[in-house]
């Protein structure tokens, strides 16, 4: 029984590693400028975690195999080095691992959060609400008009609560249901929640950030690959959570110019 158990553990460990090694369900392709740092960090961690996983499962299996059928006269043996050796080993191995991952991880984290958006980053406001995202482009004047929560009327397509009659800044704001951005241009995303907590997750962009009601969070990124991607909500926000998404279209500059023009006409 113990030997079958040992073999089972080894089989499970190997089977668990196969999909990772074979890239059967890999991370989505990276289309951002900062994503490679996260991916490198992920690969490093996968190596370290994967090796410790395999090593400890194999060791467990091996010991179970070896010591489960003692002969009557067998004496207890002590592990060479004893507890002290193991503790030192744990501190050294895991400690270095942690330190390394921690220190290198800071770089990837900093690339997302500790850099300020460049001055010519394109501002886009995204508003999350039950259960849709809407996007606002400041229009030619480059300024967003103020929001008036009491003026929000989804029934009349006023998703942000803009007062276009009184606020001059709001007049040329462009509100859209999908997010189009020009490729290789830095985007400065101003995140606003209409009601409860939501999250902005584009796996390909390697960004995920919660919307915090009452607090406007910002995020910046640059997309490097033209295509259509999905923006999904990852923070449980109610019954339509699974259905809360929008499309992100990364376009060439010309396509984007045409698109924004077309959207402006529709306002």
């Amino acid at each position: 029984m113990a030997k079958i158990f040992a073999v089972t553990i080894i089989l499970i460990a190997i089977a668990s590693a196969i999909p990772i090694v074979m890239h059967m369900w890999p991370m989505p392709q990276d289309i951002s400028t900062h994503g490679y740092l996260i991916d490198e960090q992920y690969t490093d961690t996968m190596w370290e975690a994967g090796l410790s996983f395999l090593a400890s499962q194999f060791l467990l299996a091996f010991f179970i195999w070896k010591f489960s059928s003692p002969k009557p006269g067998d004496k207890i043996k002590s592990f060479p080095g004893g507890a002290k050796g193991l503790v030192i080993a744990a501190f050294l191995l895991v400690g270095t691992e942690c330190l390394a991952l921690g220190v290198f991880g800071v770089k990837a984290w900093a690339s997302v959060y500790f850099t300020a958006p460049s001055a010519n980053a394109m501002p886009i406001q995204v508003q999350a609400g039950q259960f849709a995202f809407y996007f606002r482009y400041p229009g030619p004047d480059g300024t967003f008009g103020p929001l008036h929560p009491d003026k929000i009327s989804e029934a009349n397509a006023n998703f942000f609560g803009l007062d276009t009659t009184n606020d001059p800044d709001s007049k040329d704001d462009i509100v859209t249901a999908e997010m189009a951005i020009p490729v290789n241009r830095e985007i400065h995303l101003l995140m606003h929640s209409k009601d409860v907590g939501h999250s902005f997750y584009v796996p390909e962009l390697r960004v995920q950030q919660d919307f915090v009601p009452g607090l406007d969070v910002t995020l910046h990124f640059t997309a490097t690959k033209i295509g259509k991607y999905e923006i999904v909500c990852t923070q449980l926000c109610g019954l339509g959570h699974y259905n809360m998404k929008a499309y992100l279209e990364v376009m060439s500059q010309e396509d984007y110019d045409a698109w924004i023009k077309q959207q402006a006409a529709l306002q």
Binding site: G129, Q130, F131, A132, Y134, E154, A155, A157, F159, G238, L239, G240, N243, M244
Partner: peptide, 12 residues
């Protein structure tokens, strides 16, 4: 009574 679909905010 106004009625809405929150999943499709335009539906009213």
């Amino acid at each position: 009574i106004p009625v809405k679909c929150n999943i499709h905010p335009w539906m009213n």
